[in-house]
Write a protein that binds this DNA or RNA. Structure first.
Lengths: 170, 170
DNA sequence: ATCATTTCCATGAAATTTCATCTTTTTGTT
DNA sequence: AACAAAAAGATGAAATTTCATGGAAATGAT
């Protein structure tokens, strides 16, 4: 750390030692970027009366006509037992519906309800607006480049077998 | 480099509905990328006898000569009370040292110890190797571009005031 | 067919995290 | 100078997550 200097640094995080290991470390950069970008949208999610995980579930279900608990668990980066419980609560609130799959009755398919859809309609619009605001400073080309590189990265690194967790940076 | 040629379908997560909302949603892409890239390195961290958070603390301290609990909390995306407890345990294990700052005795500075350094030396090398493996498929130019865009993103979005949390994708 | 194995999800107990609060020290105000 | 307000970190109680397991169904082998 920078000792003496009473004023310390300016900001809070980017400030300190410039030659820090993590500043050149991709997992760190991804984790920070993810965390900061996401956090900015939290207030809007909570203002809509949803928990963060609930929003993630709903966003994941959007455009799909139902996902199993297992897939949802990967999409939302939430471990299966945690997700099961969240979905249970959401079903109680009539935001999603759970049904057994006919062809494989072990599976539980989760679908968004009309109420759930109404609830998230506005939120999805805000989410996209948020994304625009984030990408705008980069210009269309760079923005597109960033997105496609992230997609390529995902393609090269398949999701993990057993459910998902959160994302630290190692 | 664009598109995602490799892997095809049959995977696990990328499979289903192609037109899912989240597939075009930056916060989702960042969270997934972060999660997958990080998780690959977990085994190595645990093999070294460290918890993930402990590794994050040590990696954050590398190249710095000490950070306050508050800054560490941001760097590691861990809330302050959680981090305080982790650091306490690490001090007990003689991996880090905690000292009161002379100029502001409210602050606690955390420094890596020699033992901590020995412990993470090999791990940091492995971490960089891991990063190389991840970036290699993109080629040097694209890799550099990705890194610098992430850095720019961070510069535009300062860390949050009160400690850090994990990073979902909203 | 039968039985062993694997997969998917639910669930309770245990572990971890988070919130709220407290203490100590610094900063700002009058 | 005195006192109020703010900031940093520690800590215990409460809430959440995670692990381990269980039941039910599908898959595979003999």
């Amino acid at each position: 750390m920078n000792e003496d200097a009473p004023g310390r640094e300016a900001d809070e995080g980017e400030t300190a030692a410039a030659g820090r290991f993590v500043d050149n470390y991709l997992p760190y950069l991804l984790a920070q970027a993810s965390s900061r970008v996401s956090r900015e949208f939290h207030r809007e999610v909570e203002a809509a009366g949803l928990s963060v995980t609930e929003w993630r579930v709903l966003a994941s279900l959007e455009g799909s006509d139902g996902e199993s608990i297992g897939v949802l668990s990967q999409l939302t980066l939430t471990k299966q037992p945690t997700l099961s419980k969240v979905v249970l609560r959401m079903e109680a609130n009539d935001i999603v519906a759970r049904t057994r799959v006919r062809s494989d009755r072990r599976q539980t398919v989760v679908r968004i309800t009309r109420k759930g859809n109404r609830l998230t309609e506005a939120l999805r619009a805000r989410a996209l607006a948020h994304q625009q605001r984030i990408l705008a400073p980069f210009g269309p080309d760079n923005a597109e480049k960033l997105i496609s590189m992230l997609r390529a990265l995902l393609a090269l690194h398949p999701p993990e077998e057993g459910g998902g967790e959160e994302s630290p940076f190692d």
